[in-house]
Design a protein around this nucleic acid. Structure first.
Lengths: 217, 217
DNA sequence: TCCTTGCGGAGAGTAACACTATCCACTCGC
DNA sequence: GCGAGTGGATAGTGTTACTCTCCGCAAGGA
């Protein structure tokens, strides 16, 4: 398969594929001559993975490259792969978040029994979100209890999902397949949950605000 | 309150505030002279809302402006506000998604009893995600049942959350407060769920892959 | 053998985005 | 009265993700 055909099967423009090759996101094809190269299914797969990370996951190419580097490293553990994906998905606030909110978040995580590493990007992101929410709640008392009560329904929902996902990972599968599945499960599922929630919300709003009497009252 | 003080209380640089004023994201202060203006708490609040949408929600300023326009329109219904927020959160694929996936998604939504408008951005986004996932599953049979089975755990989790959120909205509150809360509840909660899921996932991976014997084996 | 078509690789160019810097006339407070 | 500060306008900057153009070479038909 040459570049043009790779482009046709994936729908990615040739110029973009060339750019991915230059940037090192996509490994080079096997050269058959000075200006001819062969690509195979692994390239198709990798190209689709890149597009999934960028188009659906909303990552920059730099973030995608970081993940792919870990994916390609045969010595990297699953934890490291997950860590790379999480690092790219998190929107860590620029400024150092205040210690109060961070301590509150840590307390919440401990009360949940979640083991999280201090450098976790998601932890910093959560602190930023909590801080922003608190700014809009004038009477917010900054107590650990108030936080835990507010987050509980979300944490409950997500706890089950995460546990099931990790538990259902296949054990008897080659590393590259498992790793790819972990990345997709982390990145695409996050977007999946988001769109499903919006669909459920939309439906709930339509039911309550537009025609509540039509259905059950 | 003058511009410099507005900058100090929100942490947003003066030049950025000026730019938001020019772009129409932030309403002008009340002019007291040709080159002096007064800002009040509403400006502080609006500025914080803009930063929440942009920094946490990851929106472009154009998307933020679209939402704010609906928020400011006293004739806009809650549904329209939610619709604007959803429109900015969704990552709709560029290409027209294929009819097969879209029909499958519609079938799934109907089986759930979710009422969704055909133009819903979340619907198109979901179709794009399902399509990408199917590409990585060679034996995927494109049956409605397989889709429903795969999405069920996520949809179950999200269904309860969305219903609770809509149900818990205050009814006896001025429109602007309600509208602001709806936008924040839509945008910030989406990010909140994402970061919480990653934290739960991180914990689950640490438990299973790093030290499973320490805890329960 | 020629000749057209297409290939790959490299570098420059581009469009959008979100600010940021500079300038200027003016005004407030001392 | 004067200097620091203000608001408004315009132009400039850095980043990102491509996209365009060019070039020498290869492949395959006439």
């Amino acid at each position: 398969m040459r570049l043009a055909e790779l482009s046709r099967t994936t729908g990615v423009p040739p110029a973009t594929i060339k750019w991915y090759l230059r940037e090192g996101l996509l490994p080079k094809g096997e050269a058959t001559a000075r200006n001819q190269a062969q690509y195979d299914d692994a390239h198709v797969r990798r190209l689709r993975l890149i597009r999934a990370l960028v188009e659906i996951g909303g990552m920059t190419t730099q973030e995608a490259r970081n993940i792919l580097a870990v994916v390609d490293d045969p010595n990297a553990s699953i934890d490291q792969v997950v860590g790379a994906a999480h690092g790219a998905l998190a929107r860590v606030p620029d400024s150092d978040s205040d210690a109060t909110t961070l301590a509150q978040v840590d307390h919440f995580l401990a009360s949940r029994g979640w083991k999280v590493m201090p450098g976790s990007p998601a932890r910093a992101e959560l602190a930023g979100i909590v801080r922003a929410m608190a700014q809009f709640t004038p009477g917010y008392d900054h107590s650990d209890l108030a936080l835990a009560a507010g987050l509980a329904p979300y944490a409950d929902a997500v706890d089950q999902l995460a546990a099931a996902e990790v538990e259902e990972l296949p054990r008897d599968v080659p590393r590259d397949v498992l790793v790819e599945q972990v990345v997709l499960g982390t990145v695409l599922a996050e977007r999946l949950i988001g769109s499903l929630r919006r669909l459920a919300q939309e439906s709930a709003f339509l039911t309550r605000y537009v025609a509540p009497s039509d259905t059950n009252r």
